[in-house]
Design a protein around this nucleic acid. Sequence first.
DNA 1: AGACACTCTT
Length: 762
Amino acid sequence: MEDFEEEQQRRKKPRRGANGFDAAAAAERRKRIDAERRQLPAWAARDQLLSLLQQHRTLVLVGETGSGKTTQIPQFLVNARFGFGSGTGQTSVKPRAANGVDQDPGDAGPSTSGRGQANGAWGGGGGNCIAVTQPRRVAAMTVARRVAEEMGTPLGQKVGYAIRFEDATSPATRIKYMTDGLLLREALVDPALSRYRVVIIDEAHERTVSTDVLLGLLKGVQALRGDDFRLVVMPSGALRGDDFRLVVMSATLDAGRFVDFFPGAVAGLIRGRQYPVQVMYTARPEDNYLDAAVCATLQVHTEEPPGDVLVFLTGQDEIDSAERLIKDKLASLPRSQPATVGEGAEGAGEGADGADPSAPAPAPGGPDSLLVLPIYAALPPEQQMRVFEPAPPGVRKAILATNIAETSITIPGVRYVIDTGYVKSRDYNAKLGLESLAVVPVSQAQARQRSGRAGREGPGKALRLFTEADFGQLEQTTPPEITRCNLASVVLQLKAMGIDDVLGFEFMDPPPRAAILRSLELLFALGALDAAGKLTEQVGQRLSRLPVDPMYGRVLLAASDMGCALEAVAVVAMVATENVFHTPRAKEKEWRSARLKFVAREGDHLTLLNVFRGFSELPKESHKARTQWCSDNFVNIRALRKAEDIHTQLLRFLGPPSPPGLGLPLRSCGDDPTPLRRALAAGLFPHAARLQPDGSYRVLATGRQVFLHPSSVLLDRKPPALVFSELMHTTKTYARDATAVEPRWLPELAPTFFAAKAPGQA
DNA sequence: AGACACTCTT
């Protein structure tokens, strides 16, 4: 429902009366909003925060849930005209970029004069905007909307947001909510981030890859823009000069890490407002957490007062199983029983109180009064939306969720959380170049986050399906993602920003050296780096501009040479999109037969192309036709719309000459699959593999034995050679998204690579 | 022969 929420957000129009802006209603509303604001804990800390930030270049702010930090602090800064100079336009600082290239800050920000001068608050060197980063798109949009409302300005003017595919900002924007990934992209063009006077990294404790790279960059930015830093407190209390400020906001008490990382940083704490959650543990370890979760759900249902239950499980399969188990057990419960029977039943009748006595309400704790609802990312939007609908009176919802419910979505009505204590986690083995997906115990911080989901609307209860002693043994926090992922894109971006010594880059938690080295090797093999590790103009420069994995960027460049860029763009857009197919266990026959009409004998990439083409042929304006087609074909409409957006963006980046395009020829190979297969081979050659007598494959570059993923259309065809998108180790090492290639193409398309490692030798 | 947590990109 990510995009369900996104759409809802977009559809909301500023409140207007019949004749445009209804001033009276707006004033009334703002008065109420203003009163709400003043109740927030952040409000009480306002003066102290401003004073801290005048004296320190970096503020690490621990803001607990409900403190109002995200919405209020940017407003405090703007209203206090903090750090935006006194309007004289004088500047004593000329910042230098990290790469040593002089940079005129006046050029970097979009139209900093004009309007800025008009209210007398702006001016001075550098930009005049506050960037506030969020890990998620929806958060950037919703928070921006709220803050615009609080400030009584139309969204996109003084307060705006920017996310991929969408820019709701203007030259007047002073507070810009944006995704962390987007700010990172901007740093590619402007490594000093000179258009921002203040950068606020929100939800820093989540430690997304983008957040971590930004933290490293910002440390450099600070050194650079603080070079000539002088504290000049003006009579107005404002500061002068390029007084760049950084605020790192985090929800947990790991502030010390951030303070240690940024020289001269100071930490502050704003208490939150959360309802208490009573945390309970099991007395003994559970040997089957799935069964335990099922029992616990039923126990809550039959014994606890009304309130929905949120159960954290690890994946789609497990959720399917749990759903069946719960329904089976429910069927054996007595169908009708008085509300007062059994201990703990007092209060359980509450939900049925207002019901019509002639129409028998479901018995509280009975089989009809529990509504079991799955939620995970791959679930089609219309099914996801069901968890947001309130349960009918007397009915309790049990939501079986993956990690999606940990941060990405908030489900109303939840008062009970059941935490299995496990999560499916991605890991990366740099030595083997292998990603893996495994069920692992959560961290303590994660368990707390999950429990907190019970206390959003009132006091709640959390049942942890492990012992208190086990909790003590858990890692305190989950290792940052950057230490356990493929770094090809990150390394390419750092190189493109002029950071040549990637191994020496100051990460807060450095990734394994082997992971960086492996990425350097890959980028060299792709031709993005030369032997000295410098970004190459022809390939490296271009790849860094394309918002796709470097291997796929290489596919696009090759495809434009080979006359099949149009097809390659569609394929890459589809590969970058997860959960294209909906594969419910109960309807396996149906989705298998639906899939057949898209299957291309050449492999999964061309199959995805067929799906994209099928979807593209539908009339764009007919939401109904598109939804129907997707549902008929067991294709996820959310994924296809995303692929469509990426497709459009890639065409723009590749097509018409700068800005922003690379000016490459965008031609079609029509129905001839060969050029496209060659283009795929030209970018994915590090993932080329040859068939072994036993039906497995051997990766040419590493010699590693891998298996075709069971979802591959090539599974029963087994071509002698193929290239694949990625390796994933679950029960075995699987190659996903494969396309058959001619073995002779490989040394032809990547001579250097295969000269060093002769095919078949490995 | 047998399966895939979650975000995100000028």
